[in-house]
Nucleic acid binder design. Structure first.
Length: 479
RNA sequence: GGCCCUAUCGUCUAACGGUUAGGACAUCAGGUUCUCAUCCUGGCAAUCCGGGUUCGAUUCCCGGUAGGGUCACCA
């Protein structure tokens, strides 16, 4: 054992959790769990303008819903707290003072307008903007009312990234980045480095948007006299239509919305992990335990992936079918229709068993099971629209229904026997299942689809089946 | 525009110099004594382009092209 593994997820409370941030969190968590290390949640709330009320709670709720638990965080005490940056201002101040003392930080004397003029100039020259080209020769003492900047030492860097491989950059990207803003809050650039060091974070796992500024972080680590952590940079997840980074404006959905739409947490975890990662085998469906066991950063791909909801839907079906009926019943409680909620858990499970193979999301439940709970109104046009049934006369159809009704009055009412009786009916009438079974199925369900006829009847019960047949016969006669 | 990253079926991806370029989703066609689904079988479908290196390149190198990121007192 060398260094203890400590990873973190460090979102800013400026919105909800989408698939991109969820994946970063998931991968950091998987590493920590696999290596028996710690996973930390740190709230990076240093942007007071963009702060969104309730966002932190939303983020925490999302993590919990996905089963991504953290060992240290805003609401979980740990040895390196507080875990909210706005409560750590004194710490940043101390590190900033140290940089001022060593001559590595200075007050920024320019007004925003002057800065903007510098930028415009760079743009006009078709060059990247570099503040250090305008570094003041005699900056005033920093009094906390102006930004504090790093006095950078431009140089080329080479570093290793667990996902991206060996990376390098030239001195031209190194600049005097802002450490503390004029409102007294640290920038992300400064705060996350201080916090990661203080919190003994071993692996910094984050999105690709930070790749370009990594050389500047390297410069800052050196100025602070800190060792660099292990870096792992995740490629972006892209919107389904279009190739840009999946952002909120591009229709990135709230992770909680997927849960509300009837996707299982384990589906989301499996799916998000499979966007850019696989174990090298042809396995597609992974349990969370398997992911913890098999995940590795060096098998994460370097190119961006698109989010394909069709594949998500398929995967959800797979996970639903992997659930026992009891487990499925627990997940389904909030998805039943009104009349279904009123029935017994035993009956719910019985029906769940029948429709399990048909569920893509739990939200499909009401549509798929409605007619079990509420007697449907006969809709004879479904008979007329049926290619085979429409060839028969009404009298013939009613005759078959009456025959079935008669038989059902006395037989043992279980799925197996019902199949035997239905087969007997086939022999008796010399009719094809396409005719006879379709007719009875419609007469008891009036639904475009249902489970196998014998199963449907078994669950419906004899009384209800007979009542529905009576209703169908009566309706047919009136035509 | 500068800098950085990326590039295999429509989509997610496998193949770490030698394969008929594999799997999955989607799609199409069949099968499972009725429907819808599940499940099974099969079909269609890809190495961005151009140079090198090599006996041999999806794979290594260079150049294009395309996409993404970044150049904030946002993270």
């Amino acid at each position: 054992m060398s260094q203890p593994i400590r990873t973190r997820f460090a979102p800013s409370p400026t919105g909800f959790m989408h698939v991109g941030s969820a994946r970063t969190a998931l991968f950091a968590w998987l590493i920590a769990r696999q290596q028996h290390g710690q996973f930390i949640l740190r709230l990076e709330d240093t942007d007071r303008v963009r702060h969104v009320e309730g966002s932190a709670e939303h983020l925490i709720k999302s993590l919990r819903a996905l089963g991504i638990n953290y060992d240290e965080g805003p609401d979980v005490d740990g040895p390196y707290g507080p875990y909210i940056q706005s409560e750590r201002l004194a710490i940043y101040r101390q590190w900033a003072e140290k940089l001022i003392e060593t001559g590595r930080a200075y007050a920024d004397p320019y007004t925003p307008e002057e800065l903007e003029a510098f930028r415009a100039e760079a743009r006009a020259n078709k060059q990247a903007f570099l503040y250090r080209h305008h570094r003041p020769t005699n900056p005033p003492a920093w009094d906390g009312t102006t930004p504090l900047r790093l006095k950078s030492e431009p140089k080329a860097y080479h570093w290793h990234d667990e996902v991206m491989g060996d990376l390098s950059s030239g001195p031209e990207v190194i600049d005097d980045i802002v450490l503390i803003k004029s409102d007294g809050y640290p920038t992300y650039n400064f705060a996350h480095i201080v916090d990661d060091a203080e919190m003994k974070v071993s692996h910094v796992i984050r999105g690709q948007e930070f790749l370009a500024s990594t050389p500047n972080y390297l410069n800052l680590y050196e100025a602070l006299g800190l060792d660099r952590p292990i870096f792992a940079t995740m490629p972006h997840i892209m919107a389904e239509n279009g190739r840009k980074k999946l952002g909120k404006r591009d229709g990135a959905k709230d992770i909680l919305d997927y849960l509300r739409d009837g996707y299982l947490p384990e589906t989301l975890v499996n799916f998000i992990a499979s966007l850019g990662w696989n174990d090298g085998t042809e396995q597609e469906i992974f349990s969370v335990e398997e992911l913890i066991d098999k995940f590795s950063l060096d098998r994460v791909g370097r190119s961006g992936a698109r989010f394909d909801e069709k594949r998500l839907e398929w995967m959800n079906g797979q996970h639903i079918r992997n659930l026992s009926t009891n487990e499925l019943a627990e997940r389904a409680v909030n998805f039943w229709g009104e009349s279904a909620k009123a029935t017994s858990p035993e009956r719910q499970r019985e029906i769940l068993e029948l429709v399990k193979d048909r569920l893509k999301t739990l939200a499909d439940l009401p549509l798929l099971t409605e007619y079990f709970f509420e007697r449907p109104a006969p809709n004879w046009s479904m008979v007329n629209d049926n290619k085979q049934l429409s060839k028969l006369s009404n009298d013939e159809l009613i005759g078959y229904l009456e025959l079935a009704r008669q038989k059902f009055e006395t037989v043992d009412w279980d799925s197996n026997n019902l199949q035997i009786q239905l087969n007997g009916l086939l022999d008796q009438t010399g009719q094809k299942p396409g005719i006879l079974f379709s007719l009875i199925r419609l007469a008891v369900s009036w639904a475009p689809f249902s489970p196998a006829l014998n199963d449907t009847l078994a669950v419906l019960g004899r009384d209800e089946t007979l009542a529905r047949l009576d209703l169908a016969i009566e309706t047919g006669r009136q035509l």
